[in-house]
Design a protein around this nucleic acid. Structure first.
Length: 423
RNA sequence: GGAGAGAUGGCCGAGUGGUCGAAGGCGCGCGCCUGGAGAGCGCGUAAGCGCCAAAAGCGCUUCAUGGGUUCGAAUCCCAUUCUCUCCGCCA
């Protein structure tokens, strides 16, 4: 959520910058400003009323002590009137504040100046590219064929047990999955991210804190009996560690990493984009999260992106880095880099990481703040990224490393898999 | 799941209707003292919001959360959540 001060002081800037995200905020900003000023007036009225009541209450106490019963009773009657108007004003204020809040969450985060305008994915800038993206020889198989051939992932079995999009990993497939998790966590730890094992279900407050609620409710699995949500990413529980926290400047940067299973309903997806491991309802991911001082958050964004690049380099996978354009960047992000691996058999780029700086947008909802040198309380910046999402890494790895003898395991993973080849 | 006890500031802890944003202690910050440190002494130490161009200042809210009683609630009543103890169940 944006800070309301920004709309009070600089509404035009908000409108202009949101145009980059193809978002016309003109009307919404006007409505919000109107509501905000109404609410402040009302608040003032209520505060004054309360002051009168507080003073009256003190006076009544005194009058009773002095034995002036009649005066006290008269004043009591007055209080009743004040109370009555307080009641109506308060009800109105609450209603209007909810309305204001519901409008505020409709405003996306402002994009960073580096974000270029654009319609959608086709306008993203390729800022880096590495590795061999030539095609495989004749007869190369897509991963959904390979996993059958070597019996390492069973999609039909998952459908039987649960439903589509819940694959079952078997034998060397399961082991490879576990190896990747372990490898990614070790690398993140080496880079200074403190490992967290978070809950896989969160309450409403947490889902709201990171912005899954209220707008993306349909994307999450919901346990209605207990009103918990299955996490769509470890970002949700990990970032919520810092909900309602006031940090010291010396606490920065706070770096966490976490492995978790991720659950996404992804309603409405179909077709060949969702084939095999490309898109699942349950998948594994290692997430990195940084809470940073506003002055350093963009430096940190680069570092986090570099961490993802390093992982893909070590795995020997061809990849590219995109800086998302205004049309493709998420609602809550100020600047996002996507990392995509090249899947040779599908001849397709697959997103395996998305690294974003949310600046203070998320922190504002989370009430994640710090005290600066002068003792003022300010909003911190939050960043997160995948390091990395497993299924698509696995897909590319299987496809790109297939040989006549079998699937060759990258050198760096062998200490974890304790085998060199899937055959 | 059953029975009971409890929830107060960064922490511990007092407080059963007005003088309580809240004693006392710890911690923390600043100052004095010291060659330096410690001890000691003194002062200070929550957040949110509003008024104000801003600072100062003033006002409002907050003692788990939500409602209620009352002129007035940390204090009384109701509901919810959470924590602890005992019992049950359980990896």
């Amino acid at each position: 959520m944006l800070q309301i001060q920004l709309l009070r002081e600089n509404p035009q800037e908000v409108i202009d910058r949101l145009k980059i995200k193809n978002f016309d905020a003109t009307e919404l900003v006007a409505e919000i400003r109107e509501l905000d000023s109404e609410n402040r007036n009302l608040k003032k009225k209520i505060d004054d009323n309360l002051m009168a009541q507080n003073q009256g209450a003190k006076k009544i106490g005194q009058l009773f002590k002095e034995g002036k019963r009649d005066e006290a009773e008269a004043l009591k009657a007055e209080m009743a009137t004040l109370k009555e108007s307080e009641r109506t004003d308060r009800a109105k204020l609450q209603e209007q504040e909810e309305l204001l809040q519901s409008k505020m969450v409709l405003l996306p985060n402002l994009p960073n100046a580096a974000v270029k305008p654009g319609k959608g994915a086709e306008d993203n800038e390729i800022v880096y590219k590495q590795g061999d993206d030539s095609n495989l020889p004749e007869g190369a198989l897509p991963h959904w064929e390979l996993v059958k051939k070597y019996d390492i992932i069973d999609f039909e079995l998952g459908t039987k047990i649960t439903g589509a999009g819940f694959p079952v990993y078997k034998g060397k497939g399961a082991r490879l999955q576990r190896a990747l998790i372990d490898f990614f966590l070790d690398e993140a730890t080496a880079a200074g991210f403190v490992e967290i094992q978070p809950p896989y279900m969160v309450n409403e407050d947490s889902a709201y804190g990171t912005g899954q609620l209220p707008d993306k409710e349909g994307q999450m699995y919901h346990c209605q009996v207990d009103n918990f949500y299955l996490i769509p990413t470890a970002e949700v529980p990990v970032t919520n560690i810092y909900r309602d926290v006031i940090l010291k400047e010396s606490d920065f940067p706070l770096k966490n990493c976490a492995y978790s299973a991720c659950f996404r309903r992804e309603a409405g997806s179909y077709g060949k984009d969702v084939r095999g491991l490309n898109r699942l309802h349950q998948f594994d991911k290692i997430e990195i999260v940084t809470i940073e001082h506003p002055d350093r958050s963009y430096e940190t964004l680069e570092q986090m992106t570099n961490h993802g690049k390093m992982l893909l380099t070590k795995l020997g996978l061809p990849f590219r880095v995109l800086r998302l354009c205004g049309g493709d960047i998420s609602f809550t992000s100020a600047l996002t880099y996507d990392l995509e691996v090249y899947s040779k058999a599908q001849q397709k780029w697959l997103e395996v990481s998305s690294v974003s700086n949310f600046e203070s947008y998320q922190a504002n909802r989370l009430k994640l703040r710090y005290k600066d040198a002068t003792g003022k309380t300010k909003l911190a910046h939050t960043l997160n990224g995948s390091a990395l999402a497993l299924p698509r890494v696995l897909a590319a790895l299987l496809e790109n490393n297939q040989t006549e003898k079998g699937i060759v395991i990258p050198e760096v993973l062998r200490p974890y898999t304790r085998f060199d080849i899937i055959d």
